[in-house]
Each structure stands twice: as C-alpha cells, then as structure tokens.
Design a protein around this nucleic acid. Structure first.
Lengths: 247, 247
DNA sequence: ATACTTAGTTGTACTGTCGAACTTACTTAG
DNA sequence: CTAAGTAAGTTCGACAGTACAACTAAGTAT
C-alpha cells in the first residue's frame, strides 16, 4: 500500500522532491551481549561465500536489510533478526545509533540502524542459529576482523554499555531470573573491568527501587546467599552517582 | 562510482540478496536548540504548499532527504542542513537516534536519522533562512503540531538534553564565547527547569577541567563577575554525580 | 574440632552537596 | 556623602553516600 504510493510517485517522474533521490541501502544490525565464563561476549554470524556478497566468509554483526513488507518499524526489524539468530523474543533492546556513508558498503551508499541487546547467559545458550557464534570481547574489539564498519559499531556498543553501567542498572538484564547480590556485583565488575566496593555496592542496589528479595536462598559451598529478582519495571534505573571512579 | 555499482547490480536482476529489496526513504532531521529570552528554543521550518508534499504548510524540523551525491555520510548531511538554515558551520552536534516505520511518512516506508545541535544565541540569530523560525519550548513540545513524527523526535531530543544536562557540561555549548559562572548556572536552570545551589554549582564547575578564567571581568550594575571561556577540548565533561535531584 | 571460603554487617574517615548566612563591589536614591 | 539595594562570590555546619578495613555468620573440607 505504502509501496504502491511510492511506486506511483516515482513512475510519474514528476519533481516530487525526494522520491526521485537515489535511495541508500537501509539495514539494521544488532550487537547482542551476554556473559559467559566471566567474560563479556558478543554474537557474530559468519557471512556466506556468495560472489555477489561483500566480505564473503567474514564475521559480522547479526543484521541485514530492512524488509518493508515484514518490518513494521526499525525496532521490529531488530527484534526479528535477534529472534532469527537466538530465538529470544523479549530481550533488553536499545537503539545504539546509525552509521551511514558512501564508503561503508562497497555496493552502494548505505545506512545501518544499530541496536544493542542484553541477554542472560541462560537464555542465550539455547537455540543459536547455525551460522551464529559467541565471541569474547578483547577490550572493545573481538579477534576476527569484522565486515563493513562493524568493528566501529561494536566498539561504540561496548563503550556505550560500559558508560551506562557506571550509573545505571543495565547489568541486571544480563542476570538470570534469580540472582544474588554478589553475582550481580560480579557482573558489574566484568562489564566495567574493575572491582567495586562491596558495601557501597550493596547499599546502593538495595536502596534503589530495582530488585526485591525472594523467599529462597542460594546454597553453595559457603554461606548461603539471599536470592533477588528484578522488580516488575523493565526500565533501567539511573543512579545519582557513578561508581567509585578508577582515577 | 558507488552509485554505478548499485545500478549495475540492480539492472542485472540477479538475486543479489538485498539490493533487490525495496528501499525505504532515507532522511536526516536536525533538532537545533538555543536559548533566547531565558527560554529554550528550537528551530522549525515551514513546509511548502506543493501538492506532492505531505503536510503542506506545517512546521517541521529542518531536514530532508540524504543526497548521496553531496553527502559523504550522515553527519555531513546533518551539517549541510544545519548550515542551510542557520549558516552555522561548527556547532555542537550529536546523533539522537533514528525513527523508521511504514507509517511515519504517508508516501512510503521511511527512516530518518535525527541529530541534535546546540547553538549560542549570539550565533543563532545571524542569517536565518527565510522559512526558518525559532519557537520556544512548552514542556517537551512546541505550539504548532509538527509534520511527520517530528513531535515525537522533538520530545526525545528535549528529554535527552535534559537528561544529559544533569551530569554533563552540555549547556556550555549554549553559551557565548565569554560568560560568567552565574550566566552558566542560569543556562543550566533554564534547561533543567529548576534552581540549582549556587555554591555547589560553583565548586563543581571550577573543579571540572572544563572552563578557564580570562583576565577580563563582566561589569554590570552590581559587583563585577569573572569571565570564563570553554577550555580547548570540545568534548563535553561527564560529572560523577547528578545535580541535586528534584526528589 | 579447625581451617577455609564467601555472605553480609559494622564503624570510621572522607568527600562533596545542601542550605543558609556572610562579605564584597558596584549602582541608585535621598 | 551616606544608606539601601542587588548580584557575585565565600564560608561554615549539617548531612548523605562512598572508601576502606575489620568484623561476624554460615556453610564446606580435612
């Protein structure tokens, strides 16, 4: 329907200011994070070796062209790609930014809308697509050289994540349904790459209206720990201060 | 060059996965803020009354189609549109996000890349385009109903600005070359919509490596005030705490 | 029983904001 | 010339939250 309108306008050949412009390619890419083995990981897919595709065989962020017939909007497109690769349907998903230039795709002027998602490791391990694979992060990069400008996008995603972790509750979305405070703190420390003060962390997390204790306790080889879960609100909490800065 | 490659691929009619997808319209819009008469203002342009254009006569954010022949990348496109409307060539410019859906433009599936810019009032008043006009902000809106989903984009820009003002030095980019600390504080207060503590504001601004005093003083009807200017670094400063929160 | 480990608490020092009162420098009214 | 007014800038005590370290608690392993 909307397409027909566009076709008509284009076929009419009139100076309809804009519909006549050559259109950039429009894609969506998703940077999907999770924590495995005490390290931040990102999901990459290996590209096919077809001759018409750029960067054959290279690794890339999950993503691809917007399908105007199936994708109601950009976020729906991101969710579709995320579901195709991981099976996950309701992750924490946030828009990261957009990258568009004449140079980033050898085929044509192209613009990508980048999202980033946080998944609990427990969910992330189920039902990965055949061409998808988790890679640990080395600093802000990943070992293989990525296709397009995906190295740059990944670096921006990591930076954004680290930045927001300083003053928000984002790491809570990397946790399983039930978790203990020390586990949450460890997640913060993994993402930030530096240790945090135990008591300050506790008082902050407990005074924030973010988590609630549940009746159960986590038993282990040592003293049992109180289990918590996220409160109903899905929105992240913003703290008034950053954590003890590295100096 | 890049265009030719695209044309070829399309003409070949091969299943080149992606180049065959119908492409969304790609635009860039810029939310340009300044402060006039102790109030936050945004720049709007009035759309022409041509029959082929949607929302004829309505006000909209400055923006339009990406011109792949002239725009090296998205930011260059935003800078071009900003210069066309204001003459300003080196503002504070930050990407805001992107909005894309089948519904936002009645003509076709379209995606816009939104930026927001901060201009000092002194610069902003020079050389406005004929169809451009400053509008004061009422909350997160503006009086006229805007074209497309620009009301939503504007609201997001205001929210982002207010948010970042809590813990960054962004308002410094709304100041003239030379300014006093009380003037800077007033700018913060205008953007935030609430008063700030004088002494805390001073110690924070002075201990941040952001501004430097210059030899001159601003004379007025009362005690003269020390003049400051932004330090060389163009990047905004992030504070470790937010300002006294409203509750 | 004893040592070890991790969860969680307590207490002191310190930093920066809050809030108000104060000093300083200039203008204007009488 | 003096007194009142105004805005710039400083000072000070109260307070909140963090830093750091020492402590208690509850389990396992030997």
């Amino acid at each position: 329907m909307a397409e027909r309108a566009g076709q008509k306008a284009r076929e009419s050949g009139g100076r309809t200011a804009g519909l006549d412009f050559p259109r950039p390619l429009t894609t969506v890419d998703v940077v999907i994070f999770t924590i495995r083995n005490d390290a931040l990981h990102v999901l990459l897919v290996q590209r096919g070796a077809g001759d018409n595709e750029p960067f054959p065989g290279a690794f890339a962020l999950p993503g691809g062209f917007v399908d105007i017939a199936r994708d109601r909007d950009l976020e729906a497109c991101a969710l579709r790609k995320l579901k195709e690769k991981t099976g996950v349907v309701s992750p924490y998903l946030e828009q990261l930014g957009s990258w568009g230039s004449a140079a980033r795709d050898p085929r044509f002027w192209s613009a990508t809308h980048a999202y980033f998602a946080l998944l609990p490791a427990s969910i992330a391990d189920r039902a990965l697509a055949a061409d998808a694979q988790w890679f640990p992060l080395v600093g802000e990069r990943v070992k293989p050289k990525l296709a397009f400008d995906h190295d740059e996008i990944l670096a921006a995603a990591v930076q954004r994540l680290r930045n927001k972790v300083e003053y928000t509750s984002l790491p809570a979305y990397l946790m399983a349904e039930e978790f203990t405070l020390p586990e949450l703190q460890r997640t913060y420390e993994i993402v930030l790459g530096r240790p945090l003060e135990k008591s300050a962390f506790r008082t902050r997390m407990l005074s924030a209206d973010l988590i609630e204790p549940i009746a159960k306790m986590r038993k282990g080889p040592n003293r049992p720990a109180q289990l918590y879960r996220l409160k109903a609100a899905k929105e992240p909490v913003y703290f008034a201060r950053t954590f003890n800065p590295p100096e």
